[in-house]
């Protein structure tokens, strides 16, 4: 299991487009479970609606957990996406 915390610098936080990019990124790793936590809520990163329902905005901190055969690769892809400002 790998876990990392990110601060959302992107102005839109996890609005529809960034959230959709996150879900699409996670879909490339079908056997790996990916969870996103904000505050005390944790949801599956495969569910766009759940990710949107976190209401994560610019400046918020989110924690991502990956578990499965491709957990390292999945985390690296997510880090590139989030730290690159969701520049899909």
């Amino acid at each position: 299991m790998v876990e990392r915390t990110f601060t959302l610098t992107h102005a839109a936080g996890l609005h529809a487009r960034p959230a959709a990019l996150l879900v699409q990124t996670v879909q490339r790793f079908p056997g790996t479970e990916v969870l996103v936590r904000k505050g005390d809520r944790e949801v599956s990163a495969r569910s766009l609606l759940s990710v949107l329902s976190l209401g994560a905005s610019q400046g918020d901190t989110i924690t991502v957990r990956c578990e499965g055969p491709q957990e390292e690769e999945a985390m690296a892809a997510i880090a590139r996406l989030v730290e690159g400002g969701f520049d899909g």
């Binding site: 599956s44 495969r46 569910s47 766009l48 609606l49 759940s50």
Partner: peptide, 9 residues
């Protein structure tokens, strides 16, 4: 389309 395929839905 992503919402349509959403596991939560």
């Amino acid at each position: 389309r992503l919402m349509l395929a959403d596991p939560e839905l």
